[in-house]
Amino acid sequence: MKIWVDADACPVVIKEILFKAANRTKIHTTLLANHNMSVLKSPYIHFSQVSQGFDVADNEIVERCQVGDLVITSDIPLASDIIDKGGLALSSRGEVFSKENIKSLLSMRDFMDTMRSSGEHTGGPAPMNQADRQQFAAQLDKILTRHLQSQPKS
C-alpha cells in the first residue's frame, strides 16, 4: 500500500496526521500539488509538484495509484476514479468513499453544481473542527491497521 494525497486543498492539520502515520507505519506517502510545499523530512514522506492546470494533480494520482493504495481527497470525481481502479479513498473529514456510496455522492455533487450555476448560493463546507480531525484520524488508523494486519509476518 502507498498513500497518495491530493495536497492542493488538504488542510495542514490533516497533513500532520498523515506525516505521523507514515512514519509510524512506514507506509510511503506522496503529496501531489501544483504548487511547491514543504513536507516533513522522512524516508516515508515524498512531495511531487505537478504542472498547473485543471485536474493535473488528480490525473497524476489516478495514473500512479495501484490496487489497494489509499488516496486522501475531498474531490468526489477523483475518489470515484480511484474506487474504479481498485484503490481506497478517504476525505480529509474522515468520510470513507466506497462502491456503495460514491454514485449517490456524485449525484449530490452534480446537483449542487447545477444549483450554483443557476445562481443559488449553497455555501461552502463548514470549517474543519476537532470532530472532523478525530474522524479522519480514526478512519485512517482503521484502514492502516487493516492493511498492516493483512501483511505476512517476517
Results as ranks from 00 to 15, higher is better:
E100D: 12
A137Y: 04
L140R: 02
M128G: 02
M128D: 14
S104A: 15
F136W: 09
G94L: 07
D110W: 11
R109H: 10
S92N: 07
L88Y: 11
G94Y: 14
P77I: 15
M128R: 01
K99W: 13
D75Y: 07
L78G: 03
E120Q: 06
L140W: 09
G119L: 11
F97T: 00
M128A: 06
I102C: 10
A89E: 10
M115E: 15
G94W: 15
T73Q: 03
S92Y: 12
G124A: 04
G124S: 08
S107F: 12
R109D: 13
S92Q: 07
Q139I: 03
L140H: 11
S98W: 06
I83E: 06
S118E: 03
S80N: 10
I83F: 06
L70P: 03
S118T: 08
L90Q: 00
M112L: 11
G87A: 13
R109N: 15
S92L: 01
L88R: 01
L90V: 00
S118D: 02
V71L: 05
K85E: 14
A126S: 10
A137P: 00
S107I: 05
S74K: 04
R93H: 08
G124L: 11
L90M: 00
S98H: 09
L140N: 08
E100P: 10
Q134T: 14
M108Q: 08
V96F: 09
A89S: 12
L88I: 15
D84I: 10
A137M: 05
M128Y: 14
S117T: 03
R133E: 13
A89H: 03
K103Y: 15
A126V: 06
P127V: 13
L90I: 00
G86F: 03
D81R: 04
P77Q: 09
E100H: 02
F97Y: 13
L106A: 05
A131H: 03
R116T: 10
R133L: 14
R116Y: 15
K103F: 15
A138Y: 03
L70H: 08
S118L: 07
V96K: 01
G87R: 03
I83G: 01
A131S: 13
G123L: 06
M128I: 15
A126M: 07
M112R: 05
G124T: 01
L78Y: 10
T114S: 09
S92C: 10
R116L: 08
H121M: 05
G119Q: 08
M115H: 10
L140E: 14
R93V: 08
V71Y: 07
L140K: 02
M112A: 02
S107L: 11
H121E: 09
S104Y: 14
S74W: 10
L78F: 14
I102P: 00
A79I: 11
Q130L: 14
R93I: 10
L106P: 05
A131F: 01
S74M: 04
G94Q: 07
V96S: 02
L90N: 00
T73A: 02
A79E: 05
I76M: 05
T73M: 04
L105F: 14
D81Y: 04
R109S: 05
K85Y: 08
I83V: 13
V96L: 08
Q135K: 15
S91P: 09
E95D: 05
S118I: 02
I72F: 01
L106S: 11
M128T: 13
V71Q: 04
